[in-house]
Design a protein around this nucleic acid. Structure first.
Length: 423
RNA sequence: GGAGGGUUGGCCGAGCGGUUGAAGGCGACAGUCUUGAAAACUGUAGUAGGGGAAACCUUACCGGGGGUUCGAAUCCCUCACCCUCCGCCA
């Protein structure tokens, strides 16, 4: 959500952002609604003032003048009973539109409709040259009996995964490694539920636009979160934090649920795209300072890069285009890691800065040094997500005999150097 | 699931139909005192809108939403959350 005052003052900037992000938001309607609300509000407030005035006089009034005053109060109220619902209706309409207005993307973002306009900015490490024919991760799973794909699919449906033996342990190890890594970098570990009320999804920005990506709990106002960010973003809703509390650096780990609507036929095999996965998430609540936000963005991106480097995986950075970054975002950099079997990089991390767009929705405020309440800036980034990262770990670190080497940083968690087949 | 009690400003807490945007305390800020700090004393200060050059005027907000009334923090309905007891349970 943007500040309505900002939209009034710079409608062209907003119009430009809508175009760059390839959205269809009726800004003219929004502005028209805004001005008719102003008019109606003034009218309503006049009657409210009259009603207040009368109500104040009545206790002091003589018995003779009282009936007349009460009648005036009744008249004012009668006008209000028609005006107030009209005003409420207009405000509801405005709110609907306000929820759709995007954050202004930064100047450096490539302008384009979708991911084809994303710009590769850095490549780290180079894809391994094999002296044998490498297997894809699904073949490695089968060969080593590390998964229970078919049986579990019968019970839970498609896009479900289940790991066995050393690979199940590796999943826990790599998650724990990522948590430890983030804690070492000064982030506080906080665990959160994987579900939340509708309100939190609006605050996060996923609702209303991407509602179809979210699983709903039947008969309840509860939805399964696709990321811990949904919960973290509402953690301080309604509070008035002190500037000295900021930035708040959180790392969280949670099961994440995604409906994957519209992805039918995509990545149907293996561990790349599943309905439930685990994610270690970085989330930062920052003061409303663009430079500070930029700085934190680099820090968070650096964390993800360091994790991938520790896992000895080649990766690249993509500066996400305006059409691909998402409505609320100021800037997004995707981190993609090398998938041997596909001969390409696939997204494993996504680093975003939203400035105050989310904070306005979630009502995240702090008192700045001058004592004035301000909306915070928010940022988030993946630290690590399984099982997708296992695809990269298996394929990149495989041996000719089908075994898989464990990266040095994970060996202490596994107490071994090579993943062994299950029986 | 059943039965009660609660939710008030940055925090704690009083108020339970009209003069309460809300006592009192803490914390914050400014000043007096002090070499400085503390203590003490004095003063300032809610949030979000609208109008105005300004002084200032005005509207809404006492968990969310709705209602009763000329008038609601106070009464009613509803939802959410918290606490206590009972039942069930990892």
């Amino acid at each position: 959500m943007l500040d309505i005052k900002f939209i009034r003052e710079f409608p062209d900037l907003v119009r430009d952002a809508i175009a760059k992000k390839h959205l269809t938001v009726n800004l003219d309607e929004l502005l028209a609604l805004d001005s008719s609300i102003a008019t109606k509000k003034r009218e309503t407030e006049d009657f409210q003032a009259e009603a207040n005035r009368v109500a104040k006089e009545i206790p002091k009034a003589s018995p003779e003048t009282r009936p007349e005053l009460i009648q005036r109060g009744k008249d004012a109220k009668a006008s209000l009973t028609t005006l107030e619902p009209e005003l409420r209706e207009l405000e509801a309409q405005l709110k609907t539109l306000m929820f759709q207005v995007p954050q202004i993307p930064w100047d450096g973002a490539p302008v384009g409709a979708d991911e084809t306009s994303n710009l590769e900015t850095l490549k780290v490490g180079s894809p391994r040259v094999f002296d044998f024919v490498p297997l894809d991760h699904v073949a490695l799973l089968e060969k080593n009996r590390w998964a229970e794909t078919e049986r579990v699919a019968r019970i839970a449906g498609t896009r479900s995964y289940s790991l066995r033996g050393d690979l199940a342990l590796l999943e826990m190890s790599v998650l724990r490694f990522a948590v430890d890594f983030m804690v070492q970098r000064g982030f506080e570990l906080i665990t959160v539920p994987s579900y939340a009320r509708e309100e939190a999804f609006y605050a996060h920005g996923q609702f209303p636009s991407a509602r179809d990506q979210v699983f709903a709990v039947e008969g309840e106002d509860r939805f399964l979160a696709g990321t811990a960010e949904v919960l973290l973003n509402s953690l301080h809703s309604g509070e008035l934090l002190e500037e000295t509390d900021l930035p708040k650096l959180y790392v969280s780990i949670s099961p994440c649920f995604r409906a994957e609507a519209g992805a039918a036929g995509k990545d149907t095999r293996g561990l790349t795209r599943v309905h439930q996965f685990n994610k270690v998430e970085q989330y930062v609540l920052a003061p409303a300072d663009k430079n500070k936000s930029d700085e934190l963005f680099e820090t968070m991106l650096g964390n993800s890069r360091a994790i991938l480097e520790a896992l000895e995986l080649p990766y690249r950075l993509l500066e996400t285009s305006t059409g691909d970054m998402g409505t609320g975002k100021y800037r997004m950099v995707d981190v993609e890691s090398w998938v041997v079997s596909e001969g390409r990089y696939r997204e494993t991390h996504s680093c975003s800065a939203l400035h105050d767009w989310q904070a306005r929705r979630a009502n995240l405020r702090y008192r700045d040094s001058s004592g004035k309440p301000r909306f915070c800036f928010t940022l988030n980034n993946t630290a690590l997500a399984t099982p997708r990262i296992l695809v990269m770990l298996l394929e990149n670190h495989q041996n000719a005999d089908g075994t898989v080497n464990i990266p040095a940083v994970l060996q202490p968690y596994m107490n071994k150097k090579v993943l062994e087949p299950s029986k």
